[in-house]
Nucleic acid binder design. Structure first.
Lengths: 335, 335
DNA sequence: TTGTACGCGTTATCAT
DNA sequence: ATGATAACGCGTACAA
C-alpha cells in the first residue's frame, strides 16, 4: 500500500520516534537529521495515516452534520459556512441526509459515533428525545443549528423566529398596509412554524390591526407549491388583502407565481414578503423583499462553537443571530 | 472514554476474538455465547470503533467529494445523489469546497489521502494535471462527475454537452424560430463552455440558419448576473432575436429578469430556454423550459461506480447520461 | 467452539 | 538528540 513511518525511518536511518517528532515539530532532534528525514519523506511521497493518528489521539478532526434534506438552498448555505469554519480548523465534515426519518437519523447517528467524529451539528430539525438520548449516551459534543430544543439544554445557533416574523409584519405596516395576510408553514412545527405565526399575530395586534382566521392560511410545509396553493386560499378567504408575508422564501415565490397566473401584479396590486433570503430571492420577478437570516454565518458560527467546545471542554452559550429586512422590489408603499 | 471490545469480552467472560466473531457474524460460536455477548453489548451500549477497524481493514467506508462551490442547486443535487448511493452502501461522504482554487484543492486532496478515504469524486471542474498527478501517486480511486478529462483516462459521469446544446437549439427551431441567440458561459471553459457553444452553432448551421458574431454573447461565467448582462448585450447586437438559449438555468433566469425590466414579455415577445433543470427552473415566471440533466441520478451513478470500483478493483466505463428537454412555459411556438 | 497473540500505523513514555 | 517499546481498539491466523 502506501509508505509508513517505518519505511521513512528505515530509509533515513533513524527510529520511528524521531520521524514522529519531526512530523509533529516537537523538537528534540538536530537540524541535520530533520532535513535528512524531510528529504526521505519527499522522496517517498510519504503521507501520514490519519486513521492511525485518530486511533491513538482520540481525535479524528471530523465533524458530522445532519440535515433533513440536502437539495435546498437553505441547507446549502448553512453547509457552506460549516465547511468553511471546519476547514479553517483543519477538520472535515461528513454530511448526512436524514429525510426527517427517525430510523435513518438514528442510523446516521450510530454511524457518526462509530466513526468517532469529534462532534455533531444537528440542523434544521426537531431534536427528538430519542436522538438526544442516543447522542448524550455517547457523550458526543452536539450543537443545534437553525433549530433549538426546549426540552434539553443543548447549545444552539439560530435567529429568533418570533422577532423576525414580528419585524416582517411591522415592516409591512410601516409601508402603510393594514390588510395583511400570512401564508404560514406548518403550525405544528414548534421551531419554524408556530413562532413565526405568533410573531406575526403579535405585531398586528400590537398595532391594533384586526386579526382573525381570515388572515392566515396554514400549509403543510414551507415549499413552493405550498406558496401557490396558499395564495389562492388566502385570496379566497381574504379578498381585500394588500400585502402578504410568506413564512419562507419558497412560499413567497410560490405566491409570486400564483399571483402572476391570476393576473395580479406584484407589487402594484399586492405586496409580497418572504423569509430566509435564499439566493432565489434575488432572482425572482420582482426581486423579493424578505427577512434575511445570515445562513452561511450561522453555519460558520455553529462549527466554530463546536470546535471551541472540543478545545476547552466547556459548553458554549447559545447564539441568537441577527435577522435583517432585505428590501427589494416586491413590497410597495401604500398611502 | 467509551467501551471497547475488551470491556465486552471481560464482562461476558469470553475472549475478544469471540466478541469480534459475533460482531462480524463469522460463525464459530454457540448460540448461547452469542446471546450472552449481545446482551452485554446492549447493557454497555458498546459501539465498535470504526477508526480501529479502518486501520486494520484498510477501508474507511468514507468517500471524499470535491466541489468548486457548495451554494448552488446544481452541486446540491449532485451531492444528494452521491450521499444516497454512499449511504445505501454504508459509506459516508466528506464534502470539500475548493472554490476552484488550486492550492486549496491540493490541500483538500492531501487531507482526503491522509484520512485514507476509499475514493474520491471530483465534480464540476477541470481536472488539472497537478491534481491528477497527486491523486495518481496515491493510487486513490477517482471518478469525475459532471466534468471529464481529455488528457487522462479517468472514468467520468456526465451528459454530452455538445448534444444537449444541439438539441436545445433544435427544439427552438422546431418551434419555428430562426432568429436565435445564445448567452453562453465562459468560452474558455473546455468542459461546459465550448461544447455548448459548438453544439448550438452546429444545430443552426445544419438547419441553414445564418449565424455570425451577433448570435452569441460570451459571458464570464454561468451566473444570474451574467444572464441579465447577457440579454442586454444580445438585444443590442441582435435586435430582432425571437428566441434565446442560455447556457445555464441561472443565465436564462437572469435573462428573464432583464426582459421583465425592459418590458419584454416572455414568451410572447421572446422565448427563453435554459440548461440544467435546476429547482429554480420550475419556480421562475414563467416556468423555464430547459434541457435537463439528471443531476441526482448522475451523483448516484458516480458514487455507485466508485463503490463498485472498490469492490472489483476494475476501472469502470464512463457513463454518458441522457439529457432531456423539459417543456415548460418560457418558449412559444412561432408561425 | 474458544482463546492467545500478533499486527495495523501512529504517538508518547521512558531510557540511554 | 535518539531509540525501544507500550499503548490505541480491533481482526485474524494459529493453537487448543
Amino acid at each position: 500500500m502506501s509508505y509508513t513511518i517505518k519505511d521513512v525511518a528505515k530509509k533515513a536511518n533513524v527510529s520511528i520516534a524521531t520521524v514522529s517528532r519531526i512530523l509533529n515539530g516537537q523538537g528534540g532532534y538536530s537540524e541535520k537529521t530533520k532535513s535528512k528525514v524531510l528529504q526521505v519523506i519527499e522522496e517517498l511521497g510519504y503521507q501520514p495515516n490519519a486513521v492511525a493518528r485518530g486511533l491513538i489521539n482520540k481525535r479524528t478532526h471530523t465533524i458530522g452534520v445532519l440535515f433533513p434534506k440536502l437539495s435546498s438552498s437553505l441547507v446549502t448555505d448553512l453547509l457552506d459556512g460549516i465547511e468553511k469554519a471546519a476547514n479553517d480548523n483543519g477538520s472535515s465534515v461528513i454530511v448526512c441526509h436524514t429525510e426527517s426519518n427517525g430510523e435513518k437519523t438514528i442510523k446516521y447517528l450510530q454511524l457518526l459515533i462509530e466513526k468517532r467524529v469529534d462532534g455533531i451539528i444537528f440542523a434544521s430539525e426537531i431534536l427528538k428525545e430519542e436522538y438526544h438520548q442516543y447522542i448524550t449516551k455517547s457523550k458526543m459534543p452536539l450543537i443545534l443549528l437553525s433549530t433549538e430544543s426546549y426540552a434539553y439544554p443543548v447549545p444552539f445557533v439560530k435567529v429568533n423566529d418570533y422577532h423576525a416574523s414580528y419585524s416582517a409584519a411591522k415592516y409591512l405596516m410601516d409601508k402603510g398596509h393594514t390588510k395583511i395576510g400570512m401564508i404560514s408553514g406548518n403550525k405544528e412545527d414548534i421551531i419554524a412554524g408556530k413562532p413565526r405565526i405568533e410573531g406575526f399575530q403579535k405585531a398586528l395586534s400590537d398595532h391594533n390591526i384586526p386579526l382573525d382566521d381570515r388572515n392566515i392560511v396554514f400549509s403543510r410545509g414551507f415549499t413552493f407549491p405550498d406558496g401557490v396553493e396558499g395564495l389562492k386560499k388566502l385570496l379566497d378567504q381574504f379578498p381585500d388583502v394588500t400585502a402578504i408575508f410568506g413564512a419562507s422564501d419558497e412560499i413567497a415565490i410560490g405566491a409570486l407565481s400564483a399571483a402572476y397566473q391570476l393576473g395580479i401584479k406584484v407589487p402594484e396590486d399586492l405586496s409580497v414578503m418572504g423569509y430566509d433570503n435564499l439566493q432565489l430571492a434575488e432572482m425572482s420577478i420582482p426581486p423579493l423583499t424578505t427577512v434575511g437570516q445570515p445562513l452561511a454565518k450561522m453555519g460558520e458560527t455553529a462549527a466554530k462553537m463546536l470546535l471551541k467546545m472540543l478545545e476547552t471542554g466547556e459548553v458554549p452559550e447559545s447564539r441568537i443571530m441577527p435577522h435583517k429586512i432585505i428590501e427589494r422590489l416586491s413590497v410597495k408603499e401604500r398611502k
